[in-house]
Design a protein around this nucleic acid. Structure first.
Lengths: 130, 130
DNA sequence: AGATTTGTTATAATAAAGATAGAACAGATT
DNA sequence: AATCTGTTCTATCTTTATTATAACAAATCT
């Protein structure tokens, strides 16, 4: 999986990595059960520090998206391993964005279309990879 | 409009304020053209620093949601004043959330239902207020 | 078994962001 | 004229983000 880091971005590097891993799973480039590169080799590939990658992994583990096996490595979790709190957190994250969309003048339909088209993008690239 | 600040939240105060103002507009508690409290009085009401409120306002102005009249005050902008870049930024913000929703195991329908129910919440409280 | 790789832990340093504080300025409002 | 407004400036403090070394012990590989 190819990950690109924008050092000048306002979003921190460890979140850029985490988000792109999540995207990679959604697109089917990587699958549950597969292992992620070690924090050291990943950091070397990206040209960044080991601890930054480590922070990404723990961020993903906290979300329940990966499982870190101490002294061994990290693997992508299966969807059935997720808890209800994941969805609660997602709701809280969606709320301000939907509010802003409405304030900006988007209609109910426009917002739905935006969401649908984005889901399709992920599902399409998943079909291509499978 | 009532704004509640959680000092222990991981989301910065200036964003809590901005998000709740956006929500207030979406809910119809405040309307385009209306003026926001001055940064000093608002800060006094919330028990926080003037500069934190000022940062909120400039954050909202950058999004195009309010207009700051120098040396005078801030008013809520009208939806027609918004540019296309607002929607582009929103797309980028939605992307990681939708990816995560899919990874967590939510179906296309479940995501749509989540979005729809949230939009309804805003629209309902808007009808009540009007 | 021995060497290597793994995540973990600890300490340290730097830079940026978030928040507060106080003060002064000049335009706008009353 | 007095007050209120956002603006600007300096300053301090805390937290977060990132990098840098180093050492440790469990897991893995050869």
């Amino acid at each position: 999986m190819i990950i690109r880091i924008e050092p000048e971005s306002e979003v921190p590097i460890y979140l850029q990595i985490a988000n792109q891993i999540i995207e990679g799973i959604a697109r089917g480039h990587i699958h549950p059960g597969q292992s992620l590169p070690s924090v050291r080799t990943f950091a070397a590939d990206l040209g960044i520090n080991m601890h930054t990658v480590n922070k990404s992994y723990h961020h993903l583990e906290q979300k329940g998206i990966i499982q870190i096996m101490p002294k061994s490595g990290a693997i992508i979790a299966s969807p059935q391993d997720f808890n209800e709190t994941s969805i609660t957190r997602l709701k809280d994250a969606f709320k301000p964005l939907i509010a802003e969309s409405l304030v900006v003048g988007m209609s109910h339909q426009q917002i739905q279309e935006l969401v649908t088209s984005m889901i399709e993008v992920f599902k399409n690239s998943k079909e291509e990879t499978q």
